[in-house]
Design a protein around this nucleic acid. Sequence first.
DNA 1: CATTATAGCTTGCATTATGCAAGCTATATA
DNA 2: TATATAGCTTGCATAATGCAAGCTATAATG
Lengths: 147, 147
Amino acid sequence: MKRTDTKSHCPVNFTLELIGDPWSLLVLRDIVFFGKQTFKEFLDSSERITTSVLTSRLSNLEKHGILTKQPHATDLRSSLYRLTEKGLGLVPMLLAMMEWGTTYDAKSAGRRKKDFVERIKAEQSALSFEVQNIVRAGGSVFGEPRQ
Amino acid sequence: MKRTDTKSHCPVNFTLELIGDPWSLLVLRDIVFFGKQTFKEFLDSSERITTSVLTSRLSNLEKHGILTKQPHATDLRSSLYRLTEKGLGLVPMLLAMMEWGTTYDAKSAGRRKKDFVERIKAEQSALSFEVQNIVRAGGSVFGEPRQ
DNA sequence: CATTATAGCTTGCATTATGCAAGCTATATA
DNA sequence: TATATAGCTTGCATAATGCAAGCTATAATG
């Protein structure tokens, strides 16, 4: 079974099957946080994705309507990759990942990033807190409490 | 290079390296949404994780302080897996994934799940909207606008 | 007490995805 | 004309997963 074969119709699983590989979200991060748009710019990220994997990830993201590939305005060799509305819909997930990673990675980040993360924390939804309290107390969102 | 080797100290990458495999988040989903706590309960999920992979994922999540393994109160064969505060910190990410998956998966979900997702959408942060608008306009969070 | 079932873990092999290196085509630049 | 760049493709080694089987300790059943 391939990693992206449909294993269930749980929405969390659906999301994982589309963008849960080790690289797709890093490409989306590069677009959202750093404004990258071209193959070369993605290639230059500090995680050192290889050309073969990048080609595969970009084509997959385009195939699933998460980004579009447009011809570059002046350079015919190049293309511009931009987020669709579906891709923009992943911003809350990226913010949540950034917040968690910043909180728990021993290597602390710069001032600018920390300020941004403080805003994410400050705007955390009441629903998130509610769910955390339920689970902390031994319950769950759709299940009955156990203890 | 292993998938979990440190490739950078970007917080998004950090999060991916800890829980970005195809299975860890499904275990966390089972805890948060369905109140599962034991090996057997995780094994029974509709995605059909195998025992070998489940063992590996649980031990990894415990190693990283995302969940704890406690002896079962009455059954000495069994253990209870519960989220730590660090694990609870992933709730916003799970909610974001659930919201996106429900919105874009053709197979629609039940009424109860949809109502929940409506609440996630309703409580989406002002920051998320702001970032979406910036990116829609060709800019990015930490970069300069391009067009 | 003997038998059977269950919880969790381990192993072995096939398949899939990624890491890495190299090279290829078309276009741009000097 | 020569060289550099953008993006893509291929081949091979390694890592992770899918799948099947079996193993140990404990629980439940007669």
